[in-house]
């Protein structure tokens, strides 16, 4: 399995085909949108989805933790599918999760699905984590980043498709710009939002890149390539007091629509 290096704001990050992001200098691993206990959430509403999503997600997480042995794990929000999700964890799954988190610094960034910190699980719960030049948030695209500030977020479950000679192939992806990375959703039952969606436009500048998850490696392409003409970011006309250099202009805040549930 080959991770891809990505340099933003003078920091070297690694994007892994499993969907996790690594910051080697900090021995930090970030993962977004686990949506644990999504199936049981649906079961309570009469849709008996397979009750294996939590263990499947934890299995993937265990693999990444074993492989990269980080010191610090940042969960970028929506770690549980709903506010009561943590209370529905099966005993076995809770034990697995505790085992995985043992000995790590754990940061739970709160998401729209899980606005309260999970009970009886180790780690700190924050709305946002600032570490060096990086801001770890659940929802990316604001507040406006300063020059040399980077943002790492989740929430949107980005996916993209590439035209291959046997038709279009669609996969979850990392969505990156000069100052930000949006992580793909990690949970076993989490779907995706195509990066061409207008909702994602502020985070998909034409000079950005997508990294589609493959089995062993990432498949990368410029955002402009997976974007039809005439959509994507429409950069606002530079304001007179806009002193930021071109290409480092932050996405316009007012066009960020927050989708409560994806």
């Amino acid at each position: 399995m080959i991770a891809a290096p990505l340099h933003i704001v003078n920091e070297r990050l690694m994007l892994c085909p499993t969907g996790v992001l690594l910051w080697p200098a900090q021995r930090l691993m970030a993962v977004a949108d686990l949506h644990l206990e999504k199936a049981s959430h649906f079961a309570a509403r009469g849709r008996m989805l397979p009750p294996y999503d939590t263990r499947e997600t934890l299995r993937k997480l265990a693999f990444a933790l074993r492989r990269y042995a980080p010191h610090h794990l940042v969960l970028l929000g929506d770690s549980f599918h709903d506010a009561e999700g943590h209370s529905r964890l099966a005993e076995e799954d809770r034990a697995t999760l505790l085992g995985l988190l043992a000995g790590l610094r754990v940061t739970w960034v709160l998401g729209n699905h899980d606005p309260a910190p999970p009970e009886n699980l180790p780690g700190e719960a924050v709305e946002e984590l600032a570490l060096g030049p990086m801001r770890f948030r659940h929802i990316g695209g604001g507040p406006i980043l300063r020059h040399k500030e980077g943002e790492i977020s989740g929430h949107y479950h980005p996916k993209a498709s590439l035209e291959t000679r046997a038709g279009r192939v669609s996969r979850p992806c990392f969505l990156t710009g000069p100052q930000h990375v949006v992580l793909p959703a990690f949970g076993a039952l989490t779907g995706g939002l195509d990066v061409r969606s207008p909702v994602l436009a502020p985070l998909a500048p034409r000079n950005g890149r997508v990294f589609l998850l493959g089995t062993d490696r990432l498949h990368s392409a410029p955002v402009s390539f997976v974007m039809p003409e005439g959509t994507g970011t429409k950069m606002p006309a530079p304001a007179e007091d806009d002193l930021l250099p071109a290409g480092h202009r932050p996405p316009p805040l007012e066009t960020v629509k927050v989708r409560r549930r994806l």
């Binding site: 590439l162 291959t164 046997a166 192939v169 589609l212 493959g214 089995t215 498949h219 392409a221």
Partner: peptide
């Protein structure tokens, strides 16, 4: 018509396209 790829492996296709 629709061309199919030997073995049908999606990942190989993606790598090729990328």
């Amino acid at each position: 018509g629709r061309e199919w790829v030997a073995g049908g492996a999606e990942d190989a296709l993606l790598a090729e396209a990328a």
